[in-house]
Amino acid sequence: MKDASPVPAIAMRGLTKRFPARQRDPRAGHAAAAAEVVAVDHLTLDVASGERLGLLGPNGAGKTTTLLMLSTLLAPSDGTALVEGFDVRRDPQAVRRRIGALLAGDRAVYRRLTGRENLLYFADLYGLPRAEAAARAAALLDLVGLGERADDLVSRYSSGMRLRLALARTVLHNPSVLLLDEPTLGLDPDISVRMRAQIAGLRRERGTTILLTTHYMREAEELCDEIAFIKNGEIPARGTADALKRQIRIGDVIALRLDPASGDGLAELPGVLRCVFQDGRVECTVDSAEKRLAQILSWLHEQGVVVRDVDVHEPDLEEVFVELAK
C-alpha cells in the first residue's frame, strides 16, 4: 500500500561524513595538512514511504557517500539516519534486512558461481526459506532476462548481464527500501533503457521506496516522483520536476526562425530574460511564454520581420541543473 505513513522510510538529520585527510598519500607530501574532506555536510532529508526520490548532483556532491551511510557500509561522522525507524548506527542489522542496495560500480557478483547460485547464496544470507528462495531466484532471473543463462558461470556473462544479476540480487529479499547508486552508469544506451524499465517495473509491482542517485536528468524524471538536488552535501532544492522548473524560474524558451535572421532588439522587450542566436534561430528565454508570445510576435510584425517558425518549450531539467550547480 502507498498510504502515506507517518514514519518516513528514510530520515536523515544533520547527516555528516568526514574523511580524514590522507596523510600517507605520497603526493600530498608535507602539505598533508590538507583539510579533511567533508563528503556530506549536515544533510537533512526525508523520503516518504513508497516515494521515489532522485538525488541529483554533480560528481563529488556526496551522493554515493550518502547511500553508503544509509546502507550501513560507512559509519556517519555525525548526525543520524533512520531507515523505517531503525538507526543505521544502533540497529544496523534491522536496517540491512530492510534495504536493497545497488551501489556504483556494483557489477561484482561471484564469477565462479552461476547466476542462480549467486542468488541462492544471497537468499541464504538473508534467511529466506529454501523453497521460497529457489522460486524467487528463478522468477527474478526471468524478470531480468537471464532465465536462459541462469546456470552459466557469471564469468561468462557480459557486464550488462552482471549488472542485471546484481539488480536481481538487490531485490531478492523483498527490501522495502531500495538504494540505487547510478544504476545505469557506464551501460550501453539500450541496456540502460532495459534497466530503467526493470527498475520501474519492480517498483510498480510493490510500491517500494526508492532513493536513486543519478546525474542523468532523464533517468530522474522517468523513475522518480521527486528530485532533490545535492551540492556540497547540501540540498539547495527539492520538488517534482515541474515544480523545480518553476521554482528555479529559469523561464520558458521561445525559439524563432526569422527572416531576416536577426533578432536585434528582442532582448530589450519586457519579460525577455535573454536571447541567444544559434543555428539560424533566436532562442529567447522569457518569464512566461503564455504572457510574452503574442507580444513578441506582434512586435516582430511591426518591425517587418517574417516569422518562419515558432517553437515554445519548457526548459529541461538539464538546464535547471546547470543553473543550480553554478
Binding site: 546502507s71 550501513t72 557500509l73 542489522q93 540491512r96 534486512r97 534495504i99 542496495a101 551501489l103 556494483d106 561484482a108 557478483v109 561471484y110 564469477r111 565462479r112 544471497f122 544470507l125 538473508y126 534467511g127 540480487r169
Partner: peptide
C-alpha cells in the same frame, strides 16, 4: 571477487 561490501550489506 571485489564483493566485500555485499557480505557487509547482508544481515550476517
Amino acid at each position: 571477487s571485489k564483493s566485500v561490501k555485499h557480505q557487509f550489506l547482508a544481515p550476517v
